[in-house]
């Protein structure tokens, strides 16, 4: 199923999600408000998006953007689900109930960005050792041990 077909399909079933849908670089993107994220994900799962491919976040300076990539084998289509999270209180509902695949991937997002996932059963650091200070993929992360690369370009 190509992206415009996917949009029509989505609009027919969930008209409230329709205005949030856009196409960027050939990918379908559904940008939702943070509080609606779980419901939108549940709707998409009902629709046939059975695999949660990727969970990550991007630090945009003013806020974090959560990025989820869902994939459907039956429709052979993929869609991005995005939502903005406040940087002061990064909190978002966990999708572990919908896809257990989120279990480790959300832990990784917590480890790297410090985003709290509500309802995650085992939210602790995964890649970095326990007791590490700070969240390294944030743009304002400071570590005296890092040697900055000289700017040759």
């Amino acid at each position: 199923m190509n992206i415009p077909e996917l949009r029509d399909h989505l609009c027919a079933i969930h008209p409230d999600l329709c205005p949030l849908f856009s196409i960027e670089f050939g990918d379908g993107v559904l940008s939702v408000p943070c509080e609606k994220l779980y419901d939108a994900a549940a709707d998409l799962r009902e629709l046939g998006f059975d695999r949660l491919g990727m969970v990550t976040a991007v630090d945009h300076g003013t806020e974090f953007e959560m990025v989820y990539r869902l994939h459907s084998r039956s429709m052979s289509a993929a869609i991005f689900l995005k939502c903005g999270v406040s940087r002061d209180e990064p909190r978002v509902r966990s999708l572990v109930d919908l896809w257990p695949a989120a279990l480790w991937q959300e832990r990784e997002a917590y480890d790297m960005f410090g985003i709290e996932f509500e309802g995650h059963p085992d939210l602790r650091r995964i890649l970095l050792p326990e007791g590490w200070e700070g969240f390294p993929l944030r743009k304002d992360y400071c570590d005296d041990r890092v040697v900055r690369r000289p700017d040759y370009i």
């Binding site: 390294p136 992360y141 570590d143 041990r145 890092v146 040697v147 900055r148 690369r149």
Partner: peptide, 10 residues
Amino acid sequence: FYYDTYSVVR
């Protein structure tokens, strides 16, 4: 992995 990384022993 000398530059820019926070987790590698040099």
